[in-house]
Structure formats: structure tokens, C-alpha cells
Amino acid sequence: TLKVHYKYTVVMKTQPGLPYSQVRDMVSKKLELRLEHTKLSYRPRDSNELVPLSEDSMKDAWGQVKNYCLTLWCE
């Protein structure tokens, strides 16, 4: 499951381990945003700071799954 905080919160079913490009595509379609305006980030467990997502950091983000849910933020 993927939970995304935006102006409102959406929850989507997804497969764990998807690459950033696929996750961003899913989120942009769900929120009806243009792909270039979809910026995603996540919060590591040991931090209060949001970390921007990229293809490289997506593996780390999937490591933050809690209760089968990855929580992301969209700007």
C-alpha cells in the first residue's frame, strides 16, 4: 500500500519495490497532476526531515515500509 500526503491524503495499492518512475507515474495520475509537477519525498524513521525521492533513493524509501504501507509526501 502507498499512502501519499498532498492537499489531501490518498491511498493506493501497489507492489513493493517498484522503481521511482512507476511510483511517480501512479501518483501523478491519481492526483491528476502533470508528471513534471509531481515531486515526491519520504521521511526516514530516524529523521524529521523529508528526503526527496529519486531512482537512487527509492530503494531506501521502500525500506521504510511500516505495516505494509509506504508513506510519501507530494509537493
Rank of each mutant, 00 (worst) to 15 (best):
M26E: 07
Y8R: 12
Y68T: 15
L50K: 07
G17I: 08
Q64A: 12
L33C: 10
D46F: 11
Y8G: 15
V51I: 12
W62N: 01
Y42R: 10
S28M: 03
P52V: 12
V27G: 07
K66A: 11
V23Y: 09
V23T: 00
P16C: 14
E55D: 12
V4S: 01
Q15N: 09
L18G: 03
Q15A: 11
E49C: 13
M58R: 00
L50W: 10
L18W: 04
S54Y: 06
G17P: 05
E49Y: 10
S57M: 08
C69L: 08
Q15G: 05
C74G: 03
Y68E: 15
H5I: 11
D60H: 11
C69E: 15
Q15D: 13
K29P: 03
W62D: 01
D60V: 07
A61S: 03
V10H: 02
D60G: 08
V65P: 11
A61W: 01
Y8I: 07
D56Y: 06
V65I: 09
W73F: 08
R34C: 08
N67E: 09
L72C: 03
W62G: 01
G63K: 15
L50C: 07
L40V: 00
Y42Q: 05
M58C: 00
T38F: 12
V65A: 15
Y20F: 09
K30I: 04
N48M: 13
K29I: 06
V4G: 01
S28C: 10
S47V: 05
P44I: 05
L53Q: 03
P52T: 11
V11E: 13
V27A: 05
S21N: 13
N67A: 05
N67M: 00
K13T: 09
K39P: 01
K66M: 01
S21H: 15
G17D: 14
D46Q: 09
E32R: 15
D25Q: 10
L40T: 04
R34L: 07
K66T: 12
D46I: 07
P52Q: 14
P16M: 12
M26W: 00
V51S: 03
M26R: 06
R43T: 04
P44H: 12
D56G: 10
E49D: 12
E36Y: 05
Q15P: 13
K66R: 14
S54E: 06
V4M: 04
E55C: 05
S41K: 14
Q22I: 13
T71P: 05
R45S: 13
K30C: 11
C74R: 05
P44L: 11
V11M: 08
R45F: 13
W62M: 01
V23D: 09
T71G: 03
Q15V: 12
D56E: 15
R34V: 10
D60A: 05
V51D: 09
K59F: 15
R34D: 15
L35S: 15
P19L: 08
S41F: 15
L72A: 01
H37E: 15
Y42G: 08
L33Q: 02
V23I: 14
Q22M: 13
T9F: 02
Y68A: 15
Y6N: 07
V23G: 02
S41V: 00
Y6M: 09
D56L: 05
K29A: 08
T71R: 01
R43E: 00
P19N: 12
N67D: 14
M58I: 10
S54D: 15
T14D: 05
M26K: 03
L2H: 07
V23F: 03
K3E: 07
